[in-house]
């Protein structure tokens, strides 16, 4: 158990928790924006117009090819260099993760919509449902069912990727952990394993309710 006391020294536990809050804040806001913009983007991506299709494709590929780290540099430093606009670290992080999340989300939504057979649309309309009613009662619930596992997957990927934001000066939970390990590296060289265990537990605490919520939602919309 050598080194575990480091977790309880000074304000360390509180600092880890506030680091966790930074992680949660950035990822939840980004995920929220990604869900909204990604759904809209997904609707656009199902367009049959070749120009719109091509634009969406290019956007998606560019976002995927460039590592998130490069995106963080481009937005945090690049925007300032280009326009003089000084974006904060967290704002930049949210922008980057939203650009990325919306693209991935859009592709997931597109896939989910295309997987719904045409006769589902036609029989909805034949029953006199309006287009909005058709989407709300028939199309979205079916799309969501296929979408939920993928969205959860994307969300956990986003949460884990937020660790990169320390490069643009934002101190999230993993960075706090590294600071604690480093501050005690001479007196408690074995603290690292305990700090990482604590962080692992904290990540689990966020991701677990997420997957529980996903399951509940799948049940609600899936039925089977």
């Amino acid at each position: 158990m050598q080194g575990i006391e480091v977790l309880f020294m000074g304000n360390n536990l509180l600092r880890l928790l506030s680091g966790l809050w930074v992680t949660i804040r950035i990822s939840l806001i980004s995920i929220g924006f990604s869900l909204i913009l990604g759904t809209l983007l997904g609707a656009v991506m199902t367009s049959k117009k070749p120009v719109i299709k091509a634009i969406c494709r290019v956007y998606l590929e560019i976002v995927r090819i460039m590592p998130q780290l490069v995106w963080l540099f481009v937005v945090f430093f690049g925007v300032t260099k280009l326009t003089g606009l000084n974006l904060g670290g967290e704002t930049s992080a949210v922008i980057v993760f939203t650009i990325w999340g919306a693209a991935e989300m859009g592709d997931l939504v597109r896939g989910a919509f295309l997987s719904i057979p045409r006769h589902q649309f036609e029989s909805s309309l034949s029953l006199g449902l309006s287009k909005i009613q058709m989407y709300v009662f028939i199309i979205f619930p079916q799309a969501i069912r296929g979408l939920i596992p993928n969205v959860i997957n994307l969300s956990t990927r986003m949460i884990k990727t937020t660790a990169l934001v320390s490069l643009i000066g934002v101190t999230e939970v993993l960075k706090v952990g590294k600071q604690i390990i480093d501050a005690n590296r001479f007196e408690y060289p074995n603290a690292a394993i305990w700090v990482y265990a604590a962080i692992f537990f904290m990540y689990f605490l966020i991701c677990f309710p997420l997957s529980m919520a996903a399951r509940a939602l799948t049940k609600k919309h899936g039925g089977e």
Binding site: L40, L41, I52, V58, Y59, V75, V79, L82, I99, A102
Partner: peptide, 21 residues
């Protein structure tokens, strides 16, 4: 669709600006 297209377009613009920069 218009709003979403706008976001897609502006994201692209940012990307190209970034590369250029």
């Amino acid at each position: 669709k218009k709003i979403a297209a706008f976001f897609a377009a502006s994201a692209l613009a940012v990307t190209f600006a970034g590369c250029n920069n």
